[in-house]
Design a protein around this nucleic acid. Structure first.
Lengths: 213, 213
DNA sequence: AATAGTTCTTGAACAATGTTCATTCTCTGT
DNA sequence: ACAGAGAATGAACATTGTTCAAGAACTATT
């Protein structure tokens, strides 16, 4: 007896993830998937509307896993009784860095795809997942005794996480030497250190009158 | 009489930039370029080895222009006698934000392409341009009286700029409402405010013992 | 000016790929 | 056993990147 429709979808997604990880979005071909899954090209299109939907589904799985990783990292710290804000943020950042390193090919694809969908319909499940990550960071910030109302703390969480994200992705533009990995981590350490110190000293309210236009 | 080889290359690049800006990398097709430039498909391949090289050339132009914009913004401040570090950094960030907003389609394409080239040869002209931008930021940081040696200041500059970059690109994942634009600018303001305050209070040396694994 | 050689241009042709759909197959309920 | 619904198939089509042999245009030499 053959695989369930659900099981076959899983199989296809696993294959797709491997393909993406090995060669990026360029490497996600209908015929390759079909061949490796032992089904025909048409059957792939029976399971998913088009390759974009396959790509989207793979991304959702990755983001889910990243969320789980982050929560797991937080739980670890909880278990160890670590309450220092800087340590906890660094641990989350470390989890993020590790995750990206573990998916050298498919993570860039997530970002590229994510960007492409700018013109698509309204709010997505993507946003929900990202908000979840932001909430975790905001929760950690709440533990610190910075003088922030909820709104400003949420802004700080988004800012901090976007910054970590920027460092990690900018860093992996160049060759992924171990030297590069060190540079990334040094930047993350500096960012988090400066950020926490800055929050402690009220830097979140240091308004300047420069306008963006 | 017809156009020079150089002039025709320019024309092709201008067309390519428009195509990228309108529809991203997907929209950069050899036949479209040829048609709009009034030449044949083969001639495009006479001017450029392949479409990747066209894309690369467009990106170089964009990065060049971004560099020029940043330098111009700096010169403006110089002329106005602004020496405050926070103001100057914010002005640079504003220039960056404006630039990205002005190239809604092609800037994402720059990033996506940039990422794809990870497996390519060695150091590129890209890196030189990025280093140039980092140097400008480092120069501004030097004006502040933070207690940083050259190496640490360079690291701080790369960190700060990567962070701004992350905020801007993360922000443009979602719809490019004006609300989104405001959110981005709020994040940039908060980042720069916190960053400067953090540097003032020695946050750049706040080492934690958490290792990335 | 005529000619030989060089370079550029062309567009037809090929290969790879996303996507569709009429046909065939398979299974389920009666 | 059989009818019908649903799934699987893979040939066929459209689009696109890329190549290349043939022709056109230009340059330098005599």
């Amino acid at each position: 007896m053959a695989l369930d429709k659900e099981e076959m979808s899983e199989k296809v997604l696993a294959i797709a993830e491997t393909l993406l990880n090995e060669g990026g979005a360029q490497n996600l071909k209908a015929r390759t998937i079909a061949e490796q899954a032992g089904i025909s090209v048409g059957s792939v299109y029976n399971l998913f509307a088009d390759l974009d939907e396959v790509h989207r589904a793979v991304n959702m799985r990755l983001l889910d896993r990243l969320g789980a990783t982050g929560i797991a990292a937080m739980a670890d710290l909880e278990r160890q009784g670590v309450t220092d804000v800087q340590h906890r943020i660094l641990a989350m950042a470390a989890a993020y860095v590790r995750f990206v390193e573990a998916h050298p090919g498919s993570w860039p694809a997530v970002l590229a795809f994510n960007r492409r969908r700018a013109t698509r319909p309204g709010p997505d499940a993507y946003d929900a997942l990202l908000d979840e990550l932001f909430d975790i960071v905001a929760g950690v910030l709440k533990a610190g005794d910075f003088d922030l109302d909820d709104e400003r703390r949420a802004l700080a969480a988004r800012t901090l996480w976007s910054s970590v994200h920027g460092i990690v992705t900018s860093g992996y533009v160049a060759n992924s030497d171990s030297r590069q990995a060190e540079e990334i981590w040094h930047q993350v350490e500096l960012l988090v250190g400066v950020f926490v110190k800055g929050l402690e000293h009220g830097g979140a309210f240091a308004h300047a009158e420069t306008k963006p236009v």
